[in-house]
Every structure is written in C-alpha cells, then in structure tokens.
Amino acid sequence: MSGPPDKPRLSRTHMLDLLKQMIRIRLFEDKCAELYTQEKIRGFLHLYDGEEAVAVGVIPLLTKDDRVVATYREHGHALVRGISMKSAMAEMYGKRDGCSRGRGGSMHLFDRATNFYGGNAIVGGGLPLAVGLALAGRMRAEKNITVCFFGEGAVAEGEFHESLNLAALWELPVLFVCENNLYAMGTALAISEAETDIHAKAACYRIASEVVDGMDVVAVEAAARRALQTIRETGKPYFLECRTYRFRAHSMFDAQLYRDKAEVEMWRKKGPIERLRAWLEANHMIHPDELAQINAEVGAEIAEAVAFAEAASWEPVEDLTRFVYAEAGR
C-alpha cells in the first residue's frame, strides 16, 4: 500500500463525517467554556473555535503508528486522534481518570495509546520534539510520519527555524502544520513578522510547502493527502500552512482589545462548520434531521463526558510527588 490517494473523497457519508467531527469539537469546547465560567475547569483554557477544519482535515488521514505533536490549543486534535471525550473532559477537571491523570489539564493532553505526544505549552517547543520523534523512526527504519501542529506565533521562535533546518537536513518524515490564525495572543502577524507569507519560509529550508484555506475542511484534507503521500514517497518533511481564524479569545482571560468585533464577525461567516453545512445544504446532501441527529449524538456524548468527569476521582495528595521519576517495578 502506498497510502491514501491524492483525491478528496466527496461521498456524502464522508462529508457528513467531517461535519460531525467538527461539530463534535465545537460543542465540546462550548461546554468547556461554560464549565470554565462555573469554575469546574480552571487555569488556562484555549479554545479551537473556528480552526476545527485543520485537525479534522489532517488527523483522520494518519495511520495508527503515525505520531502527533500538538500545542496548548489541542482539544480538537486530541478528540479527532481518538482520545475519548470522557478522558479529555476528566483531564480538564484535573481528575485522576483524565488522559494525563489530571496532572496536565487543558494544555497537556497526552495519550500513549494513540501516539499523541502532547499538548505542548511552550510556543515552538513541540517542533524539536517532532524532529526527534521522526529521527527515532528513521533510525529504526519505521514507516511512520510525525505530524506537528503549531500556530503562526511559533514562526518567530528560534526553535521553529532550528527544527525546519534539522528536519530538512536529515530528511525526516515530519508534516509541519502551521495553524495560522493571524494572532499570537494579541499580536497580529503583520506586526510581528517581516515576511507574513509563512509557507514561503519553509521553502528557504528546501522543504516542500503549500498554503491552504484552513476554513475549508475539504481543501485541508486534500492538501494533507498530498503532503502525507509525498512524505511517504520521499521520506522528507513537508510544510502545510492552513490559514484560519480563532473566533474566541486567546484564552479565557483575554478581553480582545487588539481586534474589531466586525473582523471577528466577518470571519465567523467564513467558519468551517458554517461553510461545509451551507455547501451540503446547497447540494442537497444533508437533511435537517441529519444535522439534528448529529447535534443530538454529540450532545449525548458531551453529557456523558461531563457526568464521567464529575464522578471521577481526584489524585490523592499523598501521590503528589509521583511520576517525577519512573517508579521501580511499575
């Protein structure tokens, strides 16, 4: 097998599945925001609202052995990769039944079973890890690909440049996915980068790169297919810039003084869920009942996840200093 073909599958079932996955992330996070105001979820909470097409367009194309490195805005990636909503929600609560035993929280979802190498909350910090994961794969003649998600803010970090150079120099199978939502917290791309065409930067490192409309899940999926196919054929890195937008605040502490409400509204109209739904409706590919059913199914899953997180247990304080080092015999 040479991997998925370079063609989007525009079947109705597939399109409905993409829609459902995006809605699943959106509604999960809407609930998280609500739980945050109720102080069930604390700390930082960074929502993916508006960017769902990126994770949904890329991650389902991966094999089980491929690896994922994500950022602190990683709830969507975790859900699409297969971390259960229950364990993700319990992690948000800080409960022991969470996917990181509650020790990570929203920003640090990890899962060995699905090769999900975390929620990394140092901007740019995940890129060297991805290079190392891919290096290990290469040295052991494995066939897997490491996909590394990061925001456009990471592009200003030295680790971005070091990592792209290393991946290109050593010809490592890394798919770099830049989720360009135009703002690093409150700093617009245009006031932080001399060259705002991010995918052009990858070309400086001789990495094949392309830019895609990150609000169009079909386009993201098609580009990701091309990218993964190329990596599987060449073994070399590939760079995908997905132009997207964050509808909500950077985190729950953000008053959004740095952008106009009108700008946000304009982007909302271009939102990935809105867009796919409108397209499906225009092409008579979705019945209102089906949309209602998706919402109902996702709603039920969320209710279950919240009930699970509520009922889950806390790590006992006696165990505070566990897992700093490996424990003998465990």
Binding site: P128, R140, E159
Partner: peptide
C-alpha cells in the same frame, strides 16, 4: 535547543 529537543523526542520514541 533544536537538537536537544530532538534528543528528547527520540528518547520518547524509544532511542
């Protein structure tokens, strides 16, 4: 930072 982080990643992946 790049190659030390690569060492971290490679170690996590079994090297």
């Amino acid at each position: 930072s790049g190659f030390t982080g690569a060492g971290v990643g490679a170690a996590m992946a079994g090297m």
